[in-house]
């Protein structure tokens, strides 16, 4: 095994660069080193001006997502040895505006996440003061996988529909809506459907399926979106067939 590997890192300094540039760094290639370890080595030992986000280093915080050799990845879970002998291209997550170097602007997502109401909605007056909402293990299993989302934005980066039409609400937000719809304690399915049935809701999705493939937590946003289309279709057929009042 060679003892070093080259990182081709995209740099963008808004005060001096008119567009992103590429900069190369050689970092030690160690069996247990991830791409994030390589970037931290650069930051600590070579070039302190390099900017990137990270926090937990264990695939939970969801802040170190970047495009590694063109694939959206959590850099803390992507090992340099898998790219040996290199070089490894490290770019900011695709489809988002770049703030600086490897840091992208997530404002779009932050703005639309609350639109799908990802919290428990009750249609009665029961609150946590009245005690816990009880749930069986089966009821937990129904939504558990969708609750694993860490908002790392890899799915948005992999989604060409979002890249082409940034008004599309997008994979993670819709998967989170499905997470609450499937929760036995929740009564908000209709309210969320009213949001997602809108044009920028689920209809832009053409089921490329990449969101599901790149998800580091094995959530299935693509599946959630198609199931919303089916739900919306069922409701619409009902609305056309049944007289007002009975629906």
């Amino acid at each position: 095994m060679p003892d070093s590997i080259r990182l081709e890192v995209t740099r963008y300094r808004p005060d001096t660069d008119s567009e992103p540039q590429r900069q190369e760094y050689d970092v030690p290639l160690r069996k247990e080193w991830t791409v994030l370890d390589g970037l931290n080595h650069v930051k600590n030992e070579v070039d302190t001006t390099l900017s990137f986000r990270w926090s937990c280093r264990m695939g939970i915080c969801g802040s170190c997502g970047m495009n590694v050799d063109g694939e959206p990845k959590l850099t803390c879970a992507t090992f340099l040895t898998d790219y040996a002998p290199g070089p490894v291209r490290v770019e900011p997550l695709a489809n988002f505006p770049v703030v600086r170097d490897l840091v992208v602007d997530l404002f779009d997502f932050m703005e639309r996440l609350p639109r799908v109401k990802p919290w428990i909605i009750r249609d009665d007056d029961v609150t946590e003061v009245d005690g816990e909402y009880l749930q069986t293990p089966e009821e937990l299993d129904a939504y558990k996988q969708f609750s694993m989302c860490i908002n790392c934005m890899l799915c948005y980066s992999a989604c060409p529909v979002y890249g082409l039409d940034p008004t599309f609400i997008g994979p993670a937000a819709i998967a989170l809506a499905e997470r609450y719809d499937l929760d036995s304690r929740d009564h908000g399915a209709r309210e969320r459907l009213d949001v997602l049935i809108e044009h920028e809701g689920v209809w832009g999705c053409t089921f490329v399926g990449e969101c599901t493939r790149v998800c580091p937590k094995h959530v299935d946003p693509a599946g959630a979106i198609q199931r919303y289309k089916l739900k919306a279709a069922k409701e619409s057929v009902k609305a056309f067939l049944l007289p007002r009042g009975t629906r």
Partner: peptide, 16 residues
């Protein structure tokens, strides 16, 4: 109440 929309019906025909 869900508004009457054409997208779901077109999608249903697409799927069929």
């Amino acid at each position: 109440m869900t508004k009457r929309r054409v997208e779901p019906l077109v999608w249903l025909m697409f799927s069929g």
